[in-house]
């Protein structure tokens, strides 16, 4: 159990570094990159809960989260490029 706390704190530190970049990023692109990376780190977090609680619906959450974060990244990058979403 101690071990799980160690892994979770490593991932939490990673999340806080992403949050630092979201807060301080000089440009909008920096913030978008950090949001994309944060989404992937959260998938790892959900896996940890799946191990500790042994419930398989957490993996459904992980897959759905990865999908939504990917689509969000594409939408944000299109917005940065200055295009509309229906192009």
């Amino acid at each position: 159990m101690m071990f799980m706390y160690f892994i979770a704190s490593l991932l939490a530190a990673a999340c806080f570094m992403c949050l630092y970049r979201i807060g301080h990023g000089p440009t909008a692109s920096d913030r978008t990159v950090a949001i994309d990376i944060l989404g992937t780190v959260v998938v790892g977090f959900v896996c940890l809960s799946a191990i500790v609680l042994r419930k398989d619906f957490y993996m459904n959450l992980a897959i759905a989260w990865a999908l939504v974060s990917f689509i969000g990244t594409l939408a944000l990058s299109k917005h940065l490029e200055g295009r509309r979403f229906d192009e």
């Binding site: 692109s29 398989d56 897959i63 990865a66 990917f70 990244t73 944000l76 990058s77 917005h79 940065l80």
Partner: peptide, 29 residues
């Protein structure tokens, strides 16, 4: 499900990075 999710992340994450790099250059960074 874990293996499927891993395959999915391998396929999508470089695509997202590519779109973000292009988008941020065209937005003037």
């Amino acid at each position: 499900k874990a293996i499927l999710c891993a395959v999915f992340i391998v396929l999508t994450s470089p695509t997202g990075a590519h779109a973000l790099a292009r988008g941020s250059f065209l937005s003037g960074v």
